[in-house]
């Protein structure tokens, strides 16, 4: 069976790597190319996930030349997200070296029907990547525009039913971003964990992002049966220690070695 996945998540704005807390207060770290060149080692991450985090909010798009340039030295899967809203843009991103595109508002607002996405690109090329918040009353809400705008899915479906419905249409992968735990270095609270545990029953590969470098968080997530974790803050400041997380995970689960 496939291994648990450790994904390096890189938030960008233009050609800069940035990082915020709960998707806000974005700080510039450094140029993306320079950032990647320091980490150009296969064994740090299993995959790279580049997120143009304010893409939908400001209608900005991933620079295709930049993508092509950074892909020249990357020979592991790259997923890209942010501001993607047309078939043509997806074609271009895949052509420049992305292996998958992750979509949030494009799917939730049905900018491109999911059936069309699968028909054009195959289910292996499409990831649904919602940013969510588990409210105090236990409701799971979807947000778009860099976590600023709450959106209800079609027919007012619950998060569980909505993702299940996408799965029925052919979706094979979800990357759930926990807004309240993004960049804050804290344990995921009980109510969020209990809701994620329920979501883990959906028969679909799921990756979780948001303070997932913390042992308590990834142990729980992987125990529920999720396929992997995406690390962003940790990939910026502690990337050499990702090997320690890999070692810890390998005590209980199979990981790439």
């Amino acid at each position: 069976m496939t291994t648990k996945r450790i994904i390096a998540k890189i938030d960008i704005k233009g050609n800069k790597v940035i990082k915020g807390k709960r998707f806000e207060g974005l700080r510039v770290i450094e140029d993306l190319d320079e950032f990647l060149s320091k980490r150009n080692d296969d064994f740090i991450a299993d995959e790279i996930y580049i997120n143009n985090i304010t893409g939908s909010l400001y209608d900005t798009h991933i620079d295709l030349d930049l993508l092509k340039f950074i892909c020249r030295n990357i020979h592991i899967p790259i997923t890209v997200q942010g501001g993607i809203n047309s078939i043509e843009e997806i074609e271009n991103l895949l052509e420049k070296g992305a292996c998958r595109v992750a979509l949030n508002s494009a799917i939730l607002q049905n900018k491109i029907p999911i059936e069309t996405l699968f028909k054009e690109f195959g289910s292996q090329a499409i990831v649904f990547s919602p940013s969510i918040r588990v409210e105090n009353n236990g409701d799971i809400n979807f947000y778009i525009s860099a976590g600023r705008e709450l959106i209800k899915p079609a027919h007012n479906l619950s998060a569980y039913d909505y993702i299940s419905s996408l799965c029925d249409k052919g979706l094979i992968e979800v990357l759930i971003r926990l807004i309240d735990f993004d960049g804050v270095n804290k344990k995921v609270n009980d109510i969020t964990l209990s809701k994620l545990k329920i979501m883990s029953k959906i028969n679909i590969d799921t990756i979780i992002s948001g303070s997932m470098h913390i042992n308590y968080n990834y142990e729980n997530i992987l125990n529920y049966g999720f396929q992997g974790i995406a690390l962003s803050q940790y990939y910026i400041y502690n990337y050499k220690d990702i090997e320690n997380i890999r070692k810890e995970i390998s005590r209980k689960w199979e990981v790439r070695k």
Binding site: M1, T2, T3, R5, Q124, G170, I172, E173, N203, D205
Partner: peptide
């Protein structure tokens, strides 16, 4: 397997 697609790293 029940899953339709085998995605990820495998030995």
């Amino acid at each position: 397997i029940q899953k339709r697609v085998h995605t990820g790293w495998n030995y």
